[in-house]
Amino acid sequence: MNRSVSKAEWLGLVLRWALGAWMLSMGLVKAWDPVAFLKAVRQYELVSAPWLLNTVAIAVPWLEVFCGLLMVTGVAVRGTAWLLTAMLVPFTWLVWRHAWILQASLQIPFCAVKFDCGCGLGEVYICPKLAENLVLTAAAVWVGWTGRGRPLALRYDLVRGRFAAGPETG
């Protein structure tokens, strides 16, 4: 290992692996039971057209698996990190909104709301779920913004050249 690799790079590597492993495992759980995920997506009443609902239920799990693989292996890391951010932010907002509706109709405290958000873990309490999503989003933003986590990356920048953000690696 190169001794000149900074602590920030190692932190980036840990975050990259953690984020990738998490997305990979959650994506596989959803892909294993796509009907359960389809029902979970339907509860958010995002789309009404069946083909659009099916598209979301088909695309999201495998996209998570794909992004997880890229993060773990270190391919196109920054683009993947921003894509994960773009998925996590609206999803977190949807989960929050659904929990808000539930707590209003059930007349219970917000943190007592428990439902299957389609996250891959079954029924979860809303507050730990939101905290988890905030941590994941922060990790994705940090990796995407700083470009850290280059050690052991197969091809950190997919597009190499004079406009690439970081140095040639791997």
Binding site: G79, W82, L158, A164, A165
Partner: peptide, 14 residues
């Protein structure tokens, strides 16, 4: 460049 990378990843992921 990073945005283009994200779009490429999205397309390949789909």
């Amino acid at each position: 460049s990073v945005l283009g990378e994200a779009v490429l990843v999205l397309a390949a992921g789909l």
